[in-house]
Computed example of a mutant assay.
Amino acid sequence: MSDTAYPLDTMTAALHAARQRSPLVHCITNFVAMNMAANAVLAIGASPAMVHAEEEAAEFAAIADALTVNIGTLSSDWLAGMLAAATSAQRNGKPWVLDPVAHQATAFRREATARLLALRPAAIRGNASEILALSGGASRAQGVDSRDAVEVAEEGAVRLARTLGTVIAVTGEVDFLTDGERSLRFAGGSPWMPRVTAMGCAQTCVMGALLAVLPGQPFEAAATALAMFKQAGERAARDATGPGSFHWRFIDTLAAIDELQPRAP
C-alpha cells in the first residue's frame, strides 16, 4: 500500500473550523493526562469536558460534539462510564476515539478494550506496541511505554482498520495512519515528546475535537491531529532546554499553528 497525498485543504479547514466553532469534546481520560489534554484541546480552540461518572456519562455524550475514551487509569467505575458514554455516542451519531492504553498488560484491560471496540470507535490512536498487540501481534511492551517500532505495527494496523471499519493511528518517531485502504506517514516532532507525560493522551483528545468538525471524515480528522502535533513539537523544540520548557512551549506553539505543513519521512 502506497501513501496517499496529504489532504491539505481538508486538514487546514478542520483546524480553522475547530477554532471558529469551538466544539465540545467529552474527554474520558486518565488522571495523569487530564490537565495536559484539556490544555491541548483549548489550544486548538475547542472546549474540553472531563466527565467520567456512569451517572452522567451517557447524557453528556449525547450533548457533546465528540467523545474520547482513554483507559490509562482504568477502574470498574470508570469502565462503566466509558461504556455508557460510547453507547450513547453510537446511538446519537457522535464520533468517538479510543485510546487503548496498555490494553495488552492485564486481563481486565483486554476485556475492557474488547467491550469498547464492539461500540465501533471512528478512530483508534495508540503507540506501536499497543496497536501491534491489538492486531494480534506479539508486542514487547510491559506497560504504557512502546518498545516496538512503528513500522512493525503497520501491517497489523492496516488489517485491523479493515476488520473494524475504523481509522488507526500509530504514533511514534514517524506516525502511521491508515483506514485500511489509504495510508499516510508523518515525520517531525521532537525527542522531548516522549519525555513529557500525557502527550499521546492529549493527542487523542485533540483528535476527537477534529472529528467533531469532520464527523464523516475520520481519516482526514486524524491526519490533522497527527500533523499538528508533529509540527508543534518540532517548533517547540527549537528553544527548549528540557522537558519542562518544551512542555509549555508545545502548548503555545499548538495554539499558534494556523497553517499545516505535514512533513513526509
Score class of each variant (00 low, 15 high):
Met1Ile: 05
Thr10Leu: 13
Thr12Asp: 08
Thr12Arg: 13
Leu15Met: 06
His16Thr: 12
Gln20Asn: 15
Pro23His: 11
Pro23Lys: 15
Pro23Glu: 11
Val25Phe: 03
Cys27Arg: 14
Ile28Met: 15
Asn30Gly: 10
Val32Gly: 09
Ala37His: 03
Asn39Lys: 08
Ala43Asp: 04
Ile44Ser: 11
Ala46Asn: 04
His52Pro: 12
Glu56Ser: 12
Ala58Pro: 00
Ala61Cys: 02
Ala62Leu: 13
Ala66Thr: 02
Ile71Pro: 00
Gly72Asp: 01
Ser76Pro: 04
Gly81Thr: 14
Thr87Cys: 08
Ala89Trp: 03
Arg91Lys: 08
Asn92Gln: 14
Gly93Leu: 09
Lys94Asn: 09
Trp96His: 07
Trp96Pro: 01
Val97Asp: 04
Asp99Ala: 15
Pro100Glu: 09
Val101Pro: 03
Ala102Gln: 03
Thr106Trp: 07
Arg109Lys: 05
Glu111Gln: 14
Glu111Met: 12
Ala114Asp: 09
Ala114Glu: 10
Ala114Gln: 15
Ala114Lys: 14
Arg115Val: 00
Arg115Phe: 01
Arg115Asn: 02
Leu116Lys: 12
Leu116Ile: 11
Ala118Leu: 08
Leu119Met: 03
Pro121Cys: 01
Ala122Leu: 13
Ala123Leu: 08
Gly126Glu: 00
Asn127Val: 06
Ala128Leu: 14
Ala128Ser: 14
Ser129Gly: 03
Ile131Phe: 14
Ala133Met: 05
Ala133Trp: 02
Gly136Ser: 15
Arg140Ser: 12
Ala141Gly: 06
Gly143Asp: 10
Val150Asp: 13
Glu151Trp: 10
Glu154Leu: 13
Gly156Glu: 01
Leu164Ala: 01
Gly165Ile: 04
Val167Ile: 11
Gly172Lys: 10
Glu173Arg: 12
Asp175Trp: 10
Thr178Cys: 04
Ser183Gln: 14
Ser183His: 11
Ser183Asn: 13
Leu184Gly: 09
Phe186Cys: 08
Trp192Asn: 00
Met199Tyr: 02
Met199Arg: 03
Leu214Cys: 01
Pro218Gln: 09
Ala223Cys: 07
Ala225Arg: 02
Met228Thr: 00
Ala232Trp: 00
Ala236Val: 06
Arg238Thr: 05
Ala240Trp: 07
Gly244Glu: 05
Trp248Ser: 08
Trp248Tyr: 15
Glu259Thr: 14
Pro262Tyr: 08
Ala264Asp: 08
